[in-house]
Design a protein around this nucleic acid. Sequence first.
DNA 1: TTGAAAGCGCTACCAT
DNA 2: ATGGTAGCGCTTTCAA
Lengths: 337, 337
Amino acid sequence: MPTTARPRVRLRDVAEHARVSATTASLVLGGRDVRVSEQTRQRVLRAARELDYRPNLTARSLRTQVSSTIGLVADTIVTGHYGGELIRGSLTAALAHGHRLLVCEYEGDPVLEPMLIEDLVARQVDGLLYTTASHDRVELPDALAGQRVVLVNCESESSHPSVVPDEAEGGRAAARLLTDAGHREGIVLVGETPTTSLPASRRLEGVTAGLAEVGAVVAEQLDCSWWPEAAFDAVTEALAGGMRPRALVCLNDRIALGTYQALGEAGLSVPGDVSVVSFDDSELASWLRPALSTIALPEFEMGRLAVDLLLGEEAVTGAVLVPMPVRERGSVAPPSR
Amino acid sequence: MPTTARPRVRLRDVAEHARVSATTASLVLGGRDVRVSEQTRQRVLRAARELDYRPNLTARSLRTQVSSTIGLVADTIVTGHYGGELIRGSLTAALAHGHRLLVCEYEGDPVLEPMLIEDLVARQVDGLLYTTASHDRVELPDALAGQRVVLVNCESESSHPSVVPDEAEGGRAAARLLTDAGHREGIVLVGETPTTSLPASRRLEGVTAGLAEVGAVVAEQLDCSWWPEAAFDAVTEALAGGMRPRALVCLNDRIALGTYQALGEAGLSVPGDVSVVSFDDSELASWLRPALSTIALPEFEMGRLAVDLLLGEEAVTGAVLVPMPVRERGSVAPPSR
DNA sequence: TTGAAAGCGCTACCAT
DNA sequence: ATGGTAGCGCTTTCAA
């Protein structure tokens, strides 16, 4: 049933209806329990209900200089489930703080980015979350100057807090998954690791360190981009070249998918013939057969934490490492033979 | 370099600096090219630049009764990539209209939902997008009364426009993918089709109609929930029971994944032994081997269109069907033998 | 315990 | 072509 547009009822209307001043009405409806007698308070409340009063938060915001809104600036975070969880985490925390989220994406457009930020600032956001789809080092746009900012999934020279996954420790955990199962040899890394890529270099560093704890090493590294098809090709080729790994460390779940496919077509079983561990814990990980043991990207928690930091009292500065949870599933077994 | 908080500079400051009235400054900076001489206009612009003026959109909004903000209310849409694309589409269109998006999720919480909507209304949004993760019939909350609303991926009794995928036509397209390749027999549907599920019933209806065009029918239906594991079990069991399909119509990509896995373990090849078509076109579809031919859920386009409808002039009413694009990839071949 | 008045920063009306 | 003034709806002194 299409309801008719209701007349805009203002605080003053409620006050008149309740035969009190706007001040009193404001006090009552603003929830500050002071100074007003229980009787008038009830009168105001009733009037508000009867008139179906909705406060105008824009006006309140103008007066109080608080918008209870935070801006989320992303390159293209919403895309792909990773980002989705990050937003959900931010949303949850924002809600707990009584805030709403203004979401912006600039899709990598360098002229759009500062415009979006200016706009957010013009809208008087109480703070901004600056985030990137892949964990990266960034140069903060000038438009952010003077604003409360928390970086999420990226790092910068600035003194703003920066919430990032603890990739190195995650790498160690991945290695441990293998070494705990008894693996010592034939451990092959799948995925290229450019030094400019934070996840790549830190995961590699962690894996290396983790293996070193038991005197093991990465026997070989298959260079390929972090996509299923590239991984499929790389693993297929390596297998054809005679490589016989006992365990594969895939640098993300998409690589693991391509790896599963290559292994499958080569007649090798997981984890019977070769164990596989991976990173990210995308939904894919639990859908694979066998389900993939993987080190999760704590997107939800990062979003949550970032908002807490942004809105909290204490002045945190620098990087905050968020642990990457270990998801043990079915892709690791003791080495065969 | 952490820049110091700049002093708030108001329109009046710019006006004084440029030695004009606030009115004139407003006219110039508001971008209305009227009435002001080029000379003063330049003076104002320079003053604004020198003082690094940022308009206060909250104040403007209060005065003009326009917030250039739209609210997006979702049950849990952000999760999973589907929703991500929908948001990206909305974001894109909103941007084109000079609007921002206030994103809310109530996670299915029936008390949270109206509260969130009330809050958005209190924030003076120019309109609301009401959306659900899965295409469904909904009862609109009273809080939406009197608001400009467009439903996305859901339908209701209301007169608000409702942007939904054309599932039935999508179903027909899926069928055509098979019949065009010459399939007439042994066409099996995978996935349960409760009549309460709009995508399920309409896709089925479309597939049936599409097959009927060439005198073919659904030979069998494998009932299973729309998840990889359930599909794997259903297909595995059917195969074990002697079923030998020529083509499988999976009701979504996750089902297709489980189906691929079952086929693979049974030693059947796609599309050599059996063709597979599916719905949704999640990222998964292009990662599978062979890549999956699937009927895409036009999430991005739906979001885009919904915002256009919300902010546009013409008063559209009722359902707007968005075509589901056909993604032909490698999972269909002529029937073997 | 209550109310009057000022003012947040902006735009719009009505002057000139 | 330009400026004065009122007012959007709210909160917040300050006075009673």
